[in-house]
Design a protein around this nucleic acid. Structure first.
Length: 137
DNA sequence: GCCAACGTTGGC
DNA sequence: GCCAACGTTGGC
């Protein structure tokens, strides 16, 4: 299993919405680099959920369900099906991630506007220490 | 609310 | 094909 991260503006669609829905199609990503991350996803991969805008924090996780597929309306763009995994009791903020000093090269820190990205394994290890309830299956 | 980063558009 | 102008996103 590999790890990715998907941002969402919680006003539009939050981890609570994902928990309620159980599963949702992650559409609307219209950026070449972000699309590259989506196309690299495989069934069962873990996708960390991050709230942007006011919150700027990791709030939970989920899983890629099935294969990545083309957007029905605009097939040149890829979509993944996102299944809820869990919520963190305490969000891990971007400020903490930056303050750790360990992840200056991570796209989350380096490219604030990128909305989906691959996550380095060292970050996953660190995150598990920060959030004991982060337990991807 | 402001600003930096950066993607997109359109004139040339 | 270049580049300025503009729009959008997200951190603060």
């Amino acid at each position: 299993m590999r790890f990715f991260l998907a941002k969402s503006d919680p006003v539009e669609y939050s981890i609570q919405d994902l928990e309620r829905d159980g599963v949702t199609d992650w559409t609307g990503v219209r950026n070449a680099q972000a699309q590259q991350a989506i196309r690299a996803m495989q069934n069962g991969d873990c996708v960390i959920c991050y709230h942007s805008q006011g919150e700027a924090a990791i709030v939970g996780w989920g899983y890629v369900e099935g294969e990545v597929f083309p957007d029905g309306a605009e097939p040149k763009w890829s979509v993944f099906r996102y299944r809820f995994g869990g919520r963190l009791a305490r969000p891990v903020t971007l400020a903490e991630i930056k303050a750790s000093g360990l992840f200056a090269d991570f796209a989350l820190v380096r490219q604030s506007r990128l909305s989906t990205m691959a996550v380095p394994v060292e970050f996953v290890t660190w995150l598990k220490k920060q959030a004991r309830d982060f337990r991807p299956a």
